[in-house]
């Protein structure tokens, strides 16, 4: 995998399709919704598995508690809303009812990041990774594209622990090779290189694939927690340079997790973190425009690469 595909696909559609597929083979799979079934592409599941689609209305705290209660009754539960509401609104309930009680609930936060585009600051959730990373028992995932989304949904449906899955709304480039497997706690090197290690989560990472020089090693860090420190550090040891890029606040994001791993190791490197720097977002034409405005766009990555060399 050395260059970007021109094909695009929707991560949230992949989520909805995979949940629908799992619904047939997992009779204990439940979906708890907060009045965003179509936005989360869950209408097909809701129509086919009526008794296992639980609609809570716009009540994120109750929904998180109901999900934990269903898990206690032996169900595998996907709790689906926008990231700005879940975990944005119901973090305390996720902390106690789900994580402290170690409930088998998978929290799916949609419309994450600046990719929420026209919806503006309230809906452009840029703090979700920070919120959920901090929680004991919680695993955190952010797929790079629609292909990987299906693999992650299937993987976390088989675990018994709380998990957070961050997904985005627009169609985004496909870069994850269909034959490649996803393993919890493992990062895939999607492109081998010599000069700089580029690490990211979510579709923003795809911007690195269009850059041919210098030689970039691109690591898809979709498993944010547990973090694959071994793969990350081995690459950085080789390149001596690391750039982390993410559609999230700098504070509490993947960049801080990677920086901590580097500083706790013997590895020495130059380091840069491209993320939203202590700002709220705003409405914009599309995410490309917003990425440029908040200095996490293609040009910003190119500049960061020049600077770190």
């Amino acid at each position: 995998m050395s260059h970007i595909s021109h094909n695009q696909a929707s991560i949230r559609q992949s989520f909805g399709d995979t949940i629908y597929e799992l619904g047939s083979i997992m009779p204990d799979l439940y979906v708890v919704s907060m009045d965003l079934r179509e936005s989360m592409r869950l209408t097909r599941f809701a129509n086919k598995f009526r008794s296992r689609f639980i609609e809570c209305g716009v009540s994120e705290n109750n929904a998180a508690g109901v999900a934990a209660g269903l898990a206690k009754a032996g169900k595998t539960v996907f709790l689906a809303s926008f990231a700005c509401f879940s975990p944005g609104v119901n973090w305390g309930t996720i902390r106690e009812s789900i994580c402290y009680n170690n409930a088998n609930v998978k929290i799916v936060g949609g419309y994450a990041g600046l990719m929420a585009g026209v919806l503006g600051a309230t809906h452009q959730m840029l703090e979700d990774i920070s919120l959920v990373r901090a929680l004991p028992n919680m695993e955190v995932f952010s797929p790079v594209d629609a292909t990987e989304t299906a693999k992650i949904v299937k993987a976390i449906a088989r675990t018994k622990s709380p998990a957070y899955l961050r997904i985005v709304a627009p169609e985004t480039p496909l870069v994850f090779p269909p034959h490649l497997s996803f393993t919890i706690g493992k990062s895939n090197v999607l492109k081998k290189g010599r000069d700089i290690t580029i690490i990211g989560h979510g579709p923003i990472l795809t911007s690195a694939f269009t850059i041919n020089k210098p030689s970039l090693e691109i690591i898809n860090c979709s498993s944010i927690k547990p973090l694959d420190e071994k793969t990350i550090l081995a690459s950085i040891k080789k390149t001596g340079r690391c750039i982390v890029i993410e559609d999230h606040q700098k504070n509490g994001g993947l960049g801080e997790a990677v920086a901590s791993a580097i500083l706790s190791s013997e590895v020495k490197c130059k380091f840069a973190h491209l993320a939203v720097d202590n700002h709220f977002g705003q409405s914009g034409k599309d995410y490309h425009q917003l990425y440029s405005h908040y200095h996490i766009g293609q040009k910003n990555l190119e500049n960061a690469i020049k600077k770190i060399l």
């Binding site: 999900a67 305390g92 309930t93 902390r95």
Partner: peptide
């Protein structure tokens, strides 16, 4: 805390148990 035999739900932050109970009642 569920560390104690017979406790099914750890709690402390008020208002959460009834939602949990409702989910459990629906599932069982």
């Amino acid at each position: 805390s569920t560390d104690v035999p017979g406790v099914e739900f750890s709690s402390g932050s008020l208002g959460q148990g009834l939602s949990f109970a409702a989910g459990l009642a629906l599932g069982d």
